[in-house]
């Protein structure tokens, strides 16, 4: 069962995916640009707080590889929320990152 620290890092990775979508909206939007920017920055700050809290108990040799899931989260968020269409190479990259992060989590 993954520790609370791992869950914090995982949650942070998910938040980063959503944060990047907010920043993308901020860059592309005609209206409510500041709202999207504020949302993105707030999510990043929450991610930083979660990651720092996780580092209190989790070795960085575990936390940092698990945080790579943010790459996967960004691709997934872009696919689900922005309608982007990653090619097969990116999807394979996502799979490898998920496998790599899973390997880093202690049994």
């Amino acid at each position: 069962m993954p520790s609370a620290g791992v869950f914090m890092v995982l949650s942070g990775a998910v938040l980063e995916g959503v944060a990047q979508v907010c920043l993308k909206h901020s860059a592309a939007a005609q209206a409510r640009r500041r709202g999207w920017l504020a949302a993105g920055v707030l999510l990043f700050l929450v991610e930083i707080a979660l990651y720092t809290r996780a580092l209190k108990t989790l070795p960085i040799s575990v936390a940092y590889p698990v945080s790579a899931l943010s790459y996967a989260a960004v691709v997934l968020s872009a696919f689900l929320l922005l309608g982007e269409r990653p090619d097969h190479r990116r999807w394979l990259g996502v799979v490898l990152i998920v496998l790599g992060a899973a390997c880093a989590i202690p049994a």
């Binding site: 590889p65 790459y71 990116r90 990259g93 490898l96 990152i97 496998l99 790599g100």
Partner: peptide, 16 residues
């Protein structure tokens, strides 16, 4: 498993 993890992530990040 940490070393394996880093290798997989390196490959994955490069592809992404």
């Amino acid at each position: 498993r940490t070393l394996l993890s880093v290798g997989l992530i390196l490959a994955g990040v490069m592809l992404v």
